[in-house]
C-alpha cells in the first residue's frame, strides 16, 4: 500500500511540477519560443497526470496475452492521452509556423513589442491596456 502511494506521489508530483513550470513560463516570459516551450511543458504535465490516473497497483498493460491473469490498468486514460498528444502536436506545429511568419514580418519575437506593433498597424494604440486617441500627423 505504501509503495503504491509512493509511485503515485512521484508521478503526481511530476505532473504538477511540469504544469506549474509550464504556467510559470507562460506568465513570465516574453519571448515567443520560450512561451511555446512553456505550453509544451504544460501539455506534457497534463498528459502525465492523465496517465497517472490509469495506474493500478500490480496491474499490467491492457493487452490480452494467453495465460495472463493479472489485473489490467484502466485503458481509458491511455486512449485519451493518445488523442491529447496528437492534438498537442498539431497545435505546436501551427504555433511554430506562425512564429516563423511573425519573425519574417516583424523581426522580433517579443510578445510585448509585437502587441505594440499590432496596435500601431491597425491604428489602435494601447497604453496600459486601455486604448487612447491616436495623434493625427
Amino acid at each position: 500500500m505504501t509503495e503504491t502511494i509512493g509511485i503515485q506521489l512521484v508521478s503526481y508530483s511530476g505532473a504538477m511540477g511540469l504544469i506549474l513550470l509550464g504556467i510559470f513560463a507562460l506568465v513570465n516570459y516574453e519571448h515567443l519560443i520560450r512561451v511555446i516551450f512553456g505550453l509544451i511543458l504544460l501539455e506534457a504535465g497534463v498528459n502525465l497526470f492523465l496517465i497517472t490516473l490509469a495506474y493500478r497497483a500490480d496491474a499490467v498493460a491492457p493487452i490480452m496475452i494467453e495465460g495472463q491473469t493479472a489485473a489490467m490498468v484502466d485503458p481509458i486514460p491511455h486512449a485519451l492521452v493518445l488523442t491529447a498528444i496528437v492534438i498537442g502536436v498539431a497545435v505546436q506545429a501551427l504555433a511554430l509556423a506562425l512564429v516563423i511568419k511573425t519573425y519574417q514580418k516583424y523581426g522580433t519575437l517579443n510578445t510585448r513589442i509585437l502587441a505594440q506593433r499590432i496596435a500601431e498597424e491597425s491604428g489602435t494604440r494601447m497604453i496600459e491596456g486601455i486604448p487612447t486617441e491616436v495623434k493625427k500627423v
Binding site: 504556467i23 507562460l26 505550453l39 506562425l98 511573425t102 514580418k105 510578445t111 509585437l114 502587441a115 499590432i118
Partner: peptide, 13 residues
C-alpha cells in the same frame, strides 16, 4: 500572424 500567434498561445493555455 502576430495577433494569431498571441491568440493561439492563450487558446492553447
Amino acid at each position: 500572424y502576430a495577433a494569431s500567434v498571441r491568440f493561439l498561445i492563450l487558446g492553447a493555455f
